[in-house]
Design a protein around this nucleic acid. Structure first.
Lengths: 156, 156
DNA sequence: CTCGATTAAATCGTATGCGATCTATATAGC
DNA sequence: GCTATATAGATCGCATACGATTTAATCGAG
């Protein structure tokens, strides 16, 4: 019934999967950052959250989630840990008591000078131009995936 | 003491971080795969593990871990779930009882025909040539990060 | 003004990652 | 052949992700 069957499902290995390249590169980044972040007691996702707050302080949990592509179920526990460490404050918004505004403490702001990632940029092995192209390409890929998901979910 | 202080820590936002592009793209891939994998009851890491077994069946836990960049502490529970679902078998190697060999069941092999990722390739928005370049670029980036980590850890 | 619908966080359960440790097996020296 | 060491998985605890639900506050139609 199915002669020449092998051709229907070509023998693609892990190395042929773009998703695996991204998956494994993400693990590698987390491991590369670890020795640096250990010095200030941050995990990798906590660090990314701090970076978002350096860029714009005093954001709501929802606003932070939009930028980080995370929901409150992930962010709330993470932010509580950052608060317990003294890097951020969490306060209900006066205008809308449903919202929680997250702000950096002075200690949180000072982390910026304590965390140097220049070694990591070197470790990437990319020159500034390659670095920029790669970053843009991956961000576009991400946005394409999100857009396609939104379209197939809701109305096209 | 530190005049012109702003220049020492330039205002880089999330969008300037290659690591964040990779981090968020990885989340996006997991979400894009979800509706497809839900049909066969697999999670995204479980799927990647199955792909590794399609490429080469009957691997030890350690061998699988090398290809997936994962340790036994992550793989063992995942493989037990795949075994409970009937997609793989786990058996101690006769030659060396310390090793556990993981093999696909017939059901596990048949998943290959049931999971179609052509829609996802389209969703990436990349033509075959761009797709290939992106995949290679990210894999190289990953390998550079791993190499740099190994060098700074052990002897240079 | 009031009640149903909506929205923002938080909570809960499950599944990864991963450091640290444990157990069982295999190997090396003597 | 016996013991010390090394190796392969497994176990445990903690920190994300995330679907589903809950709680509390706001909004809106009447």
């Amino acid at each position: 019934m199915t002669p020449r069957n092998e051709k229907t499902t070509p023998n693609r290995g892990l190395g042929d999967f773009l998703c695996f390249a991204v998956y494994s590169a993400n693990l590698a980044f987390g491991r590369a950052y670890k020795p640096i972040l250990d010095q200030v007691g941050l995990t990798y996702p906590q660090y990314i959250t701090i970076v978002a707050l350096w860029e714009e302080d005093s954001q709501t949990v929802g606003g932070l989630g939009e930028k980080l592509f995370l929901e409150s179920n992930t962010l709330t526990p993470l932010l509580k840990k950052l608060e317990a460490m003294g890097y951020v404050r969490r306060a209900r918004a006066a205008a809308d008591e449903r919202q929680v505004v997250v702000s950096l403490t002075e200690t949180g702001r000072r982390l910026r000078e304590k965390i140097s990632t220049t070694n990591l940029v070197k470790a990437s092995g990319l020159n500034p131009e390659e670095f920029r192209r790669m970053r843009k390409g991956i961000a576009t890929l991400r946005d394409n995936l999100i857009k396609a998901g939104a379209e197939s979910a809701g109305e096209p």
